[in-house]
Design a protein around this nucleic acid. Structure first.
Lengths: 148, 148
DNA sequence: TTATACCCCGGTTCCCCGGTCGGGTTTGCA
DNA sequence: TGCAAACCCGACCGGGGAACCGGGGTATAA
């Protein structure tokens, strides 16, 4: 009965990696796991699993062999945060019937649960990787100005 | 770094119990744990712990001894679902410093995380126990009409 | 052909949720 | 005063998932 709106460390790692790939999207060269991992300070073997999940979900493409690595499958503005989080957290694949509440109290609560979930998802839907990237650049600008 | 918007089974139990207490709020007699547990099909020893948490948070009052039990500390329309979930899930007490992201990417993501959290909390804020109770009654009416 | 880098699968450690149990202490009532 | 009803407290446990680590296999560019 738990509501799957868990923005775990897992999702954050995935987003960090994808932001990194977004920044690298202009030149069409793949980035290696190690590169991303050291850049964003993520355990590389763990990141490998996350990237595999993202690949199976069709968000990134991989290139094997020497000089291989990962590429964004679509452009940064075509990937929403919801796309990322939902595939990592796996909460569009689980259309499980759940334990039916039966009582009217239980039904009412699950209705509210749904509403909470939708509110959370709406926020994730409205941001794309491009948005994150731009907000990063803006923040760095502020840092520079503050430094001067 | 996980975002604490977890509507677990725990919170649902707590809400079910509080709805039960809300329905019983008119006559100022306490309800026993066993009563609530059997009514809402919750393991009683587990419910006991949840009610203790709710009591420490000041949402319910307890009356000890024979003919004792639990009472709502405030009126049903004065208790929001946020009050309940936050105290059960314990996510206003944990103002832990978290691991600071340092990188601008990390900061941007935590900002989005905050926004998601606030969206979810806003939904929980706008409903009170009274609302749940009324929606329950409405649903039961529909059931009766459907039965006829 | 060989180094590189992805791919697959399994195991481990840790923590928390859901749930149970035993043994208190407090209180109402006869 | 004594008993029983009810709350209070802490320990414990099984299961599952998060976060990781390793080993070995496979494709590919140089």
């Amino acid at each position: 009965m738990a509501l799957p709106v868990e923005l775990s460390c897992k999702s954050e790692y995935a987003l960090l990696a994808l932001v990194e790939l977004s920044a690298n999207h202009a030149n069409h060269e793949p980035m290696q796991i190690r590169q991303i991992a050291t850049q964003q300070n993520i355990p590389d073997r763990y990141l490998e699993q996350l990237l595999a999940t993202l690949r199976r979900a069709g968000l990134v493409r991989s290139q094997r062999g020497a000089r291989g690595g990962y590429l964004l499958a679509r452009s940064p503005w075509q990937i929403t945060l919801y796309d990322v989080v939902s595939c990592i957290e796996g909460f569009d694949t689980q259309g499980e019937p759940r334990d039916t509440p039966e009582t009217s109290e239980g039904l009412v609560i699950t209705e509210v649960w749904q509403e909470v979930r939708q509110a959370a998802e709406a926020v994730l839907q409205k941001y794309t990787l491009q948005d994150l990237l731009e907000r990063c650049h803006a923040k760095q600008q502020v840092d520079i100005m503050y430094y001067i």
